[in-house]
């Protein structure tokens, strides 16, 4: 019973100085694991209690993260059997898509605060994108 939780993958990191609630931090990191394929579709993931013990956070927090992840279709929880990553091949791109949506929303909100028009915002995004491409090209040793 002891070794089990110590050896379990604890690459999820919870930060208490991060302003976001712990359940959101857990959700985000699980989504990342799924998005990059570290936790492939259909793979069994730690039980709520096991992950709570490994992360030293309360069961109720992990339970909430799992519930929300289930609602978003990222994982499936079978009663009495534990949880799996949803066996859906299109899941990873969708997760990235949703993340993009979140960031765009955030950008739009700040844009509003600054009094930017939608066109201004679109220009700023184009500039940023162009700058990133340029930086990546400059770094690549061809």
């Amino acid at each position: 019973m002891y070794t089990q939780y110590i050896q379990m993958d604890t690459s999820i990191v919870i930060s208490q100085s991060d302003g976001r609630p712990m359940y959101l931090q857990i959700m985000e990191q699980i989504k990342q694991k799924v998005a990059v394929g570290e936790w492939p579709p259909g793979e069994e993931i730690p039980s709520i209690r096991a992950l709570a013990v490994a992360l030293r956070v309360s069961v109720i927090t992990v339970k909430r993260a799992y519930l929300e992840l289930e609602r978003e279709g990222v994982i499936i929880t079978q009663h009495g059997k534990g949880s799996l990553v949803a066996p859906d091949p299109g899941l990873a791109p969708r997760l990235y898509d949703r993340e993009l949506e979140d960031h765009l929303e955030h950008a739009a909100r700040i844009g509003n605060l600054l009094g930017l028009t939608p066109d201004d915002l679109a220009d700023r995004l184009r500039d940023t994108s162009a700058r990133l491409t340029a930086e990546t090209l400059a770094k690549e040793p061809v």
Binding site: Y5, Q16, V53, R56, V57, S58
Partner: peptide, 29 residues
């Protein structure tokens, strides 16, 4: 960590008092 390890068993329960709200926020249900 030991307190959390106790809770892997669903039949066991912990009641703890603390002035350290960080500890409480982290591990309590």
């Amino acid at each position: 960590a030991e307190l959390m390890a106790v809770l892997i068993d669903e039949q066991r329960t912990i009641f703890f008092s603390s002035q350290n709200t960080l500890d409480v926020e982290q591990i309590s249900d």
